[in-house]
Design a protein around this nucleic acid. Structure first.
Lengths: 132, 132
DNA sequence: TTTACTGCAAAGCATTTGCAGGGCG
DNA sequence: CGCCCTGCAAATGCTTTGCAGTAAA
């Protein structure tokens, strides 16, 4: 059967639920410390790993290798600038229908998906065109 | 204006063009070494960074922090197992139309997008259900 | 000559792992 | 009493950076 959640996992999950945005493991670690619910960084990672496998927490890994965690909310995707790293959320997501089909076709149990667009934001386009 | 490509950048780009799959920087480093076109690992990274900003090479960063590079090919997206890491390509991509709209609406110059589904592959679903 | 590219080695960071102490059942 | 959870610190692995030598313009 499914294993129970540990106390740490519960705290992490509650914190994530109370947050608007996706945050890094390090952010969670610091935030818990502020709230006098300190736990070791390794435990934060281990808890996130468990919640991830359980399918209640989703992960988005940035180009710099840092991972951002959040609860499964409505589809939320991004437009990311390759140069300055600016990341702006977009609203439309045309993928939901496809997800249902894939789930059957590939015998995958899909928890969530990520969709991200990469390019240059307006300021960086301008900066690039002004280079020598 | 645009800066010229260096010799190293050309070699990296040519190699990427000749490969079917997306590969890591370390893979490229080893492959170049095999081909007697050795270059320092740092140069591999610096070249990839330049090609990335130029928009001719795209990056997909895995959950473990490793980045896979490839030339801009037809939309190619994945279904990834959270547990074992298995990653199977899918064919359909319903996002292209949206990309055009976003490009205008957000004043972003979009080079490419990534779309990835996360969940459990069939073997891992079974393994999980058999846990104590 | 002047500038930019390259290699090497050291440093940086997020994440993972080994191990011993501690809590819970 | 025994097992799992934790914390700490060390280790890992990818990527970045400083610096000095080198090639190109």
């Amino acid at each position: 059967m499914k294993s129970q959640r540990t106390r740490s996992q519960e705290r992490i999950l509650n914190l994530l639920k109370s947050l608007e945005q996706a945050v890094s493991a390090q952010d969670l670690y610091l935030e818990l410390r502020n709230r006098a619910e300190s736990m070791g960084l390794a435990t934060v990672y281990r808890s996130l790993e468990a919640l991830k496998l359980e399918g209640v927490v989703q992960v988005r890994t940035l180009a710099n290798g840092e991972s951002l965690y959040s609860t499964l909310k409505a589809d939320r995707h991004h437009l990311t600038c390759l140069q300055c790293g600016a990341s702006v959320p977009i609203d439309r997501c045309p993928v939901h229908d496809l997800e249902v089909q894939l789930q059957q076709g590939y015998q995958f149990k899909i928890y969530y998906h990520t969709l991200e667009f990469f390019g240059l934001c307006n300021p960086c386009q301008i900066a690039q065109s002004q280079e020598a």
